[in-house]
Every structure is written in structure tokens, then in C-alpha cells.
Amino acid sequence: IRCIGVSNRDFVEGMSGGTWVDVVLEHGGCVTVMAQDKPTVDIELVTTTVSNMAEVRSYCYEASISDMASDSRCPTQGEAYLDKQSDTQYVCKRTLVDRGWGNGCGLFGKGSLVTCAKFTCSKKMTGKSIQPENLEYRIMLSVHGSQHSGMIVNDTGYETDENRAKVEVTPNSPRAEATLGGFGSLGLDCEPRTGLDFSDLYYLTMNNKHWLVHKEWFHDIPLPWHAGADTGTPHWNNKEALVEFKDAHAKRQTVVVLGSQEGAVHTALAGALEAEMDGAKGKLFSGHLKCRLKMDKLRLKGVSYSLCTAAFTFTKVPAETLHGTVTVEVQYAGTDGPCKIPVQMAVDMQTLTPVGRLITANPVITESTENSKMMLELDPPFGDSYIVIGVGDKKITHHWHRSGSTIGKAFEATVRGAKRMAVLGDTAWDFGSVGGVFNSLGKGIHQIFGAAFKSLFGGMSWFSQILIGTLLVWLGLNTKNGSISLTCLALGGVMIFLSTAVSA
């Protein structure tokens, strides 16, 4: 259960009878995928790494000078000259100064003066180019299975845990398959586009800190620079940016070097996208990844198990997540596992009318040892309800109150669905055939309105939902006002479609 501690969480529900669903994975976010007769899966884009970055340009932001020398000439005696002028490691300046009897010249006039100092770069920052084909995306998957609280967001041991898996995709191999043991396998067909235009970005490294910066900004930095990788004795261009020549006297000129420019660069980098280094690879934390999940090989585990009949206890007080759902960790005293956990939410304890829904599909106890633990997640209705676990006299209950409203949740879900469709863009549509167009249209309606429909009408039977949709269509056909007619027709059509397409 990876997503319960992530604030940016998206719930995606598969269409009834569908074998695939489109998701948008982004750094700092987590996606929970639910479908009829399929286990619930949490998917998170953990890291995006980039390798084989080529150094484009380096800037010196802290330097020192040494070996200063000057040469001067009297008027009419030609130009002052130093051998160091031809050495690229030196920074030199030529000027004219007033000369006369007082400073060793027989004539009054302008004399030539040249001053040089050896330039040494102490600290530099480097910009590297990123090729999209060198990106690698690491995705962690977790099935809502027989897990306890100690396994949440624990990325170790996934090789031997059938509840978890790690997959890596690249532009050259965008397809992967996550093996989930008894739950089958989940196929991923990803489109490795981060949403960032790397043709316009460089990877900047300064003092063990890293950013993504725009090329134009990078090339306009007014500091000494050299092109390409460091060859040991780089040729620094624009050395004068960190060196200041003071007022010249008759035979000498003082040279000083400016202080470190790291603070000024940090100020200019305010708002830039931060990154990290992992050995020789860069780690990015921006952008998104679009994936199509193929769920035809994914299956529920323990459908044929019998119900657990022994007593359950709450190991922890049920807690609310950031998303309005409830996490419950229970301990089973029996030894008759594997068995299914009898769990439901009810409005009252007399009729036990089921409300809400299970995020953890078909929760089971897989071990036959005593005191096995299991964590599950529920989506309670707004208002008061009861969490009921167990059967008969051994069942345990917990009162729950959820604040908020169904309308607010439906609106929030619609906005999130619209954002998801905007990110998917043209990849969500198939114009290759008439059937493809209608299929894409259905998927689009489901992406945007599916979660809201589930919130508003999830407790009704599909037949009642179709009746309401048919009534809206009838009202649309018999209303003389054009805008009201079109609105009723659209709402009725969407409702009829979703009542037959969205899983219960």
C-alpha cells in the first residue's frame, strides 16, 4: 500500500470489461488503480535517471590570480610587451599612462603600459546536455494484498515479495511487465516523455548541487567559461569578468580578483528545477510519464477462499488518510488461513446495510499462523458509518465519521480527471477507425466523469442509474429551450454510458 502517505494521489477506475487503462505517473504523486474483478494496485514513479550526459560548457565562479607582471614604455618608444601576453592562462590589459620627467621619461606624453596576471579557477559549475534516449524511469508497484503497516513504502525485498514489484522503462524499451506472483502480471506500455523539453534544458552542477536550467539563461551567464570537458589546462574565455584592473600608474597597475560568485548564482537559480546525482547518473524529480496498463493477466487472489471465522482485533486505531479513506490494521487469532476477511461498512448496526467501498479488493489472510496481521483500506461514505470486521458474535466494529460532501468530492474528481486527460493529450485517442474513435470517446468520458459518477451514484443499482439517464434524455427531447435540451441530452447520455461502463 504505497499511496496512503502521498498527498498527491489519483484514483483511476477501469471500465467494466476493459483490459487496459491509461494513467499519468508523476514525481511526488501516486496512482491507485481499481477495476472490477482485479486486485487494487498502487503505482508510483520513484526516480527518473539520466546517463551519458555530455559537458557543454563550464563557468568559473571563484578564481585566484598570481605571478603579476607589468612592462611600460616612454612616449615614442613603441608598445610595451610581455611574453605572458601569448599565454592563455594569463589575463592581460594594455593601456596608456601619462609619462614625463617625473617618472623617468625625457618627453612628456602618453606611454604604453601592459599588465598580466595568471588566472586560476578555484571553483566552477558545469552544464551538461541531456539526450531523451538516455532517460530511465523506475516504477514501483504494490498490490493491496496481505501486507501490514511495516511494509508500507518499503522498497527492500521486492524481489521475493509477490505484493510488490519494480520495473524500469526507457525510450528504447518502453514496454515492461511486472510479475506479482499469485496476482498474475501487469503489463506497462509507457510513452517516455517527461513533459520537459530537454532540447531547451541543461543539467547544471555547482558545488555538489544540481538544477535543470534553460539553455539561453545558461549561455548568457557573465562569467569566465570554457567549452567542452575539462582537459586539465582549460582555456578560459572572458577571464576579465572576475578580474579587475585598478587605476594605472606610470610603471605598474594593481590587479585584484573578485570574490566568489556562488551567492549571486544561487539567487539567479531561484525557482529552477532541482535535481540530484546518483553516482555518474543524474536524478530528476520533475515531469511525468504516461503509461497504458494492460490488466488482462491480472487476477484476484483468494476468490475461492472461505470466510475467516475466528476473532479479529484492531492492532491500531483506524486512521484517516490524506485522501479521506480509512486504513485499518487487524490481527487474526485463527489458524484456518488462508481465508477471506469479512469486512464491510454499514450505516447502522441493526440492518448492516453496506455503504462505501473497499479500496483493498478481496482482502485475505494468507498465513495459517496465529496472530497474522493484515492492513486494508476503505472508502467510507460522508457522515457517520460503522466499520464491521468478522462474522457472528466475534465481529468487531468501529464508529467512523467522514466530513465533507459527495458533491465536493465529485467536483474534485472531475477536475482531476480533466487534468489527466489534458496530460494524456492525443495519445488517449485513436482515429484509425470508426470503432477506435468511439472507443476513445468512451475512454475520455470515463477518465473525466467516472470518479464523479461513482461518488454521486455508486450506491444505486445499474438499472436505477439507466432509468435516471433515460429520464434526462426524455426531458431533453421534450424541452423547447435549446440549451436546457442539449444539457439534459448530454447528461442523460453520459449517465447511461457510465452506468453500463463503470464497474460497481
Score class of each variant (00 low, 15 high):
Gln253Ala: 07
Gly104Met: 11
Tyr90Gly: 08
Gly18Thr: 00
Pro39Glu: 07
Asp197Gln: 06
Ala501Ile: 09
Leu188Pro: 08
Val31His: 04
Glu377Gly: 13
Ser368Gln: 01
Ser286Gly: 14
Asp87Leu: 01
Ala272Gly: 07
Leu258Gly: 02
Gly228Leu: 13
Lys124Gln: 14
Gly18His: 02
Val91His: 11
Asp42Cys: 06
Ile396Met: 14
Gly263His: 11
Asp296Arg: 01
Ile139Val: 15
Val330Phe: 08
Lys294Phe: 06
Phe449His: 12
Thr369Tyr: 03
Leu141Ile: 09
Cys105Ala: 04
Ser385Glu: 11
Val56Phe: 03
Tyr137Phe: 15
Thr406Glu: 04
Thr254Glu: 06
Met68His: 01
Asn207Gln: 02
Asp247Thr: 09
Thr115Trp: 11
Val12Trp: 10
Phe431Val: 14
Arg357Asn: 06
Lys93Thr: 12
Pro363Ala: 14
Glu133Gly: 08
Ser433Cys: 02
Met349Arg: 12
Gly287Tyr: 00
Val256Tyr: 00
Ser66Phe: 07
Arg164Ser: 09
Leu135Pro: 10
Val50Ile: 07
Gly432Arg: 13
His214Gln: 09
Phe457Gly: 01
Met295Lys: 12
Ile468Arg: 00
Asp67Tyr: 06
Val33Pro: 02
Thr205Leu: 00
Gly390Glu: 11
His210Cys: 02
Lys209Gly: 04
Tyr305Pro: 02
Ser499Phe: 12
Lys166Trp: 14
Lys409Thr: 03
Leu424Lys: 04
Glu262Met: 13
Cys30Trp: 07
Phe245Thr: 04
Ser142Val: 01
Pro132Val: 00
Glu370Gln: 05
Gly337Trp: 13
Asn208Gly: 07
Phe411Gln: 09
Cys291Asn: 07
Asn207Val: 15
Val6Phe: 11
Gly425Thr: 06
Pro171Asp: 05
Thr325Ser: 15
His235Lys: 03
Leu273Ser: 04
Gln77Ser: 08
His144Arg: 11
Glu244Gly: 04
Glu62Arg: 01
Ile4Val: 15
Gly458Trp: 11
Leu141Arg: 02
His219Asn: 11
Ala80Cys: 09
Thr335Gln: 13
Ser405Gly: 10
Leu204Val: 09
His446Asp: 09
Thr369Val: 15
Thr115His: 09
Met15Ala: 01
Asn134Cys: 09
Asp200Phe: 02
Ala165Gln: 11
Gln85Met: 15
Thr19Asp: 06
Leu293Gln: 11
Ser149His: 09
Trp225Cys: 06
Arg138Trp: 05
Thr500Asn: 06
Lys316Ala: 13
Cys3Val: 02
Thr194Glu: 00
Ala250Asn: 08
Thr353Asp: 07
Asp10Ile: 01
Thr49Gly: 02
Thr179Tyr: 04
Leu456Ser: 04
Phe453Cys: 11
Arg299Pro: 05
Thr315Asp: 08
Thr40Gly: 03
Gln253Lys: 02
His446Gln: 10
Asn439Phe: 11
His210Phe: 07
Ser7Ile: 01
Phe183Leu: 09
Pro39Asn: 10
Asn103Trp: 09
Ile445Asp: 11
Pro192Glu: 04
Leu284Gln: 07
Val423Pro: 01
His210Gln: 15
Gly17Thr: 01
Val255Met: 07
Glu162Pro: 14
Trp20Thr: 02
Val41Ser: 00
Lys281Cys: 00
Ala361Asn: 05
Met460Ser: 06
Cys74Thr: 03
Val326Gly: 00
Met15Asp: 04
Leu242Val: 07
Met125Pro: 01
Thr40Gln: 06
Thr369Pro: 02
Thr335Trp: 13
Ala428Val: 14
Lys128Asp: 01
Pro342Arg: 06
Leu498Pro: 13
Gly392Trp: 12
Gly458Met: 10
Val33Asn: 07
Ala422Ser: 01
Val213Asn: 10
Phe198Pro: 02
Gly157Ala: 14
Val46Ile: 12
Thr321Ile: 10
Val31Gly: 00
Lys251Asp: 03
Asn103Leu: 01
Trp429Lys: 03
Ser149Asn: 00
Ala413Gly: 00
Glu367Gly: 12
Gly17Ala: 04
Asp37Glu: 12
Asp348Ser: 15
Glu274Thr: 15
Gly232Thr: 15
Thr427Cys: 09
Leu352Met: 10
Thr95Glu: 09
Gly259Phe: 09
Gly390Leu: 02
Val56Cys: 02
Thr120Pro: 00
His399Ile: 00
Pro354Met: 13
Glu44His: 03
Lys246Leu: 01
Gln261Lys: 04
Phe245Cys: 11
Gly279Arg: 09
Leu477Asn: 08
Ser16Ala: 11
Val355Ala: 15
Leu201His: 02
Met374Ala: 14
Asp67Lys: 06
Gly102Val: 03
Phe285Ile: 09
Gly29Leu: 15
Arg420Trp: 09
Ser16Arg: 07
Tyr332Ala: 07
Ala248Thr: 09
Leu472Lys: 04
Ser66Met: 04
Thr126Val: 14
Gly444Pro: 05
Cys190Val: 05
Val91Pro: 00
Ser503Asn: 13
Ala275His: 03
Gly404Trp: 06
Ala275Met: 05
Ala428Tyr: 05
Gly109Ala: 06
Gly324Pro: 10
Gly390Thr: 04
Trp236Glu: 04
Ser122Met: 08
Leu376Lys: 07
Asp98Arg: 03
Leu113Ser: 05
Glu13Asp: 00
Thr325Cys: 10
Ala248Ile: 15
Trp225Tyr: 15
Val21Arg: 00
Cys339Val: 02
Ala422His: 01
Gly458Thr: 04
Lys294Asn: 10
Thr48Val: 14
His446Tyr: 13
Ile496Thr: 05
Pro192Cys: 15
Arg94Gln: 05
Asp247Tyr: 04
Val243Ile: 10
Arg2Ala: 03
Met151Ala: 11
Met277Val: 09
Arg357Trp: 12
Cys30Phe: 08
Ile221Trp: 07
Asp98Leu: 03
Asp98Val: 06
Asp189Cys: 07
Gly408Gln: 12
Ile468Thr: 13
Leu284Glu: 03
Ser372Lys: 05
Asn478Arg: 07
Lys123Gln: 15
Gly195Phe: 03
Arg193Gly: 09
Lys124Ala: 13
Val255Ile: 15
Glu244Ile: 14
Thr335Cys: 13
Gln344Asp: 05
Ser70Thr: 14
Val494Asn: 10
Ser461Gln: 10
Met34Gly: 04
Ala361Asp: 02
Pro39Gly: 04
Glu13Val: 10
Leu441Thr: 02
Asp10Val: 04
Ala418Ser: 02
Leu491Asn: 06
Glu26Pro: 01
Met460Cys: 10
Glu44Ala: 08
Ala418Thr: 08
Thr351Arg: 15
Lys443Ser: 14
Ala428Thr: 09
Ser7Leu: 11
Arg9Gln: 08
Arg9Val: 06
Val317Met: 07
Thr40Trp: 11
Val437Arg: 00
Asp336Leu: 13
Thr360Asp: 05
Thr160Gly: 00
Leu441Gln: 11
Gln261Thr: 08
Val257Lys: 05
Glu274Lys: 06
Ile407Met: 12
Asp230Tyr: 04
Ser142Pro: 03
Gly29His: 00
Val391Lys: 15
Asp22Gly: 08
Gly476Cys: 02
Met374Asp: 02
Gly5Val: 06
Leu223Gln: 09
Val97Leu: 04
Asp67Val: 10
Ile389Asn: 06
Asn208Ala: 15
Trp474Ser: 02
Pro222Ser: 12
Gly279Lys: 12
Gly282Pro: 08
Leu196Val: 15
Tyr202His: 13
Pro75Lys: 07
Asp278Pro: 00
Val502Cys: 05
Ala270Met: 13
Gly458Lys: 07
Gly493Ile: 04
Asp230Met: 09
Thr95Val: 08
Leu471Cys: 06
Lys316Arg: 14
Ala272Ser: 13
Gln253Phe: 10
Thr156Met: 12
Val415Arg: 01
Ser146Gln: 15
Asp197Gly: 13
